[in-house]
Design a protein around this nucleic acid. Structure first.
Lengths: 331, 331
DNA sequence: TTGAAAGCGATACCAA
DNA sequence: TTGGTATCGCTTTCAA
């Protein structure tokens, strides 16, 4: 068990050929002509030794690693995001790249960029919040071809994937107004990790409400029954609520029922995410479902472009969301 | 932008010293004595060039990568798992290792092991299902010091982290019987990804039920109202249900209410996970909370042991779960 | 206190 | 059709 891992030289010796031949055979390089007999000998030797190439050595020699880093603390959890990641992984590995999630210990800016750059990845995907101009420069100078920011608005400094939270808010508010609501509230979670997204959803809702002349109040809501109950006068004052997401909608519906406020009779309610619980609530919850099925292939294609061209790309963005309203009973 | 990334040789030249000195300074090796003045010059040169060391080259030279791979499709999603991962990441990076999630494109067995082995990680954590004996052998021969299986029971072939689903079922069943239930049912999700865990939870419940002379029926339940309604005769026949988890419990409570079955009057109900929705349901849901707070440091310590010792470890296991019953109104 | 140079494993050029 | 060998970036021994 202390034997060192077999190298291509070991394979070469066992097969009675040179290291170069081993490399040709194992990567079957189109240019090189090797007899079928030697091919076979090499393959067999590699098999017998349990040879596995050394990615680091290959990277060193070729200058390209095929590694694509995605920062794990920027990937929201939940089945939706996980499914997307799996699909992205599949798309990228089909193209010969290796997707890995690397958190970089909650670092941001230049320190995070340094940690990532050590691995000499060919692309880095990270939350827009961790990629300032200098961080992008560090990555670029370490040879990273594609730097992509993930966030709610496009980055001025690099290409980005924009997740359109404002559009969700707009859709929800528009629906409430269509249903006849004359004063609406939009929930912004008080939880630090969620507040920013909440504000983006709010801004979209506000835009639509203003355009249509409906007053909108912002409700900063911590996720607890007491928190929701403390805002009871808000819920009583409006006739429509965009609850940020389905979990908050459930919280509100529970508190409103306990307080004797009828949904949708007194106040109409819209959630977001179309979680399983949405159809289990009574009344069943109207919600915004986000269709991200187009995102993985879109992103993979864009990455491939970026990785293959020489110059760094203009800061543009792709916008692969498609929010859809699912109307049920709560609105 | 086509300039190649700066190397330690570039730094050396700019600082007017040798490559060796750069290495000494930047890793501040205790053995080597370098004057403060040269230290400063080297640091400044590195800074000016934006030098970032090349992890692959270092690995090649030292033979150790510091990379720890965890297979991403074996990490269950949800805030609990994410928090655990973050903590594990922190523990490991504090010890100088780099934790990376790598899915290996849904491979298993030897092909997955090869993919991982290319990166020459120092440890690999993966679902017990993807690590057969040969896969472990491949990893070992590629120099991976610690191979740890993640699963519901301990592996015969390598060290493992055992997540004690049976214990959850046992706790839930014991509680129901304590409350006076005389016939109970345990839900096993029909969904492929969940069924196996469901069966482990079931087995624990069954063990306790048998020991205490209470009949237990298995209920294979797809996550839908129709599915739950189709089993109505089961729910009517028993006076206690362990619902697998909180989501399934909510599903059942909805369907039972619609069918006029009272909880906990006619049937007592226990969930698992202590999700936020558990306190929002009416009646509030009794559930099993899983305390994994001890796991990250335990696992990190064990990994460190394994990585530092020479011989591969005996297949032992750590068992870092601590299920706790949270009694509310549904039971 | 610092430098020269060997070597880690794989690739790719140039010869044979 | 195959082999020899320089090279990638870094660490580390040995000399100076």
């Amino acid at each position: 068990m202390n034997a060192k891992p077999p190298t291509s030289l070991d394979v070469a010796r066992l097969a009675g050929v040179s290291q170069a031949t081993v490399s040709y055979v194992l990567n079957d390089r189109p240019g090189a002509r090797v007899s079928d007999e030697t091919r076979e000998r090499v393959r067999e030797a590699a098999e017998r030794l349990g040879y596995v190439p050394h990615a680091g050595a290959r990277t060193l020699r070729t200058g390209r690693s095929g590694l694509i880093l995605i920062s794990m603390d920027d990937v929201p959890y939940g089945p939706l995001a996980i499914g997307m990641l799996e699909e992205l992984d599949r798309e990228l590995s089909r193209r010969g790249y290796t997707l890995v999630q690397y958190g970089a210990r909650r670092l941001r800016g230049v320190p995070a960029a340094r940690a990532w750059a050590e691995l000499r990845p060919v692309a880095v995907l990270a939350g827009a919040g961790k990629l300032d101009e200098q961080a992008v420069a560090v990555l670029r100078s370490a040879g990273v071809k594609a730097v992509v920011a993930l966030g709610a608005h496009s980055s001025a400094v690099t290409a980005s994937v924009v997740v359109d939270h404002a559009g969700i808010g707009a859709l929800a508010a528009g629906h409430l107004i269509d249903r006849g609501c004359r004063t609406i509230a939009a929930v912004v979670p008080a939880e630090p990790g969620l507040r920013e997204m909440g504000e983006h959803r709010l801004s979209g809702a506000r835009r639509v409400a203003e355009a249509r002349g409906v007053p909108l109040t912002r409700a900063d809501l911590p996720f607890s029954e007491e928190g929701a109950a403390a805002l009871l006068d808000v819920w009583r004052r409006v006739d429509g609520v965009f609850a940020y997401n389905d979990d908050y909608a459930m919280l509100l519906m529970t508190v409103l029922r306990d307080a004797g406020v009828a949904v949708p009779g007194d106040v109409r309610m819209v959630g977001c995410d179309d979680l399983p619980l949405a159809t289990l609530l009574r009344p069943r919850l109207t919600t915004v479902r986000i269709d991200v099925s187009a995102m993985p292939s879109l992103l993979a294609r864009r990455l491939e472009e970026l990785m293959e061209q020489e110059a760094p790309a203009e800061p543009d963005h792709i916008h692969p969301w498609n929010p859809v309203l699912v109307v049920r009973e709560s609105s």
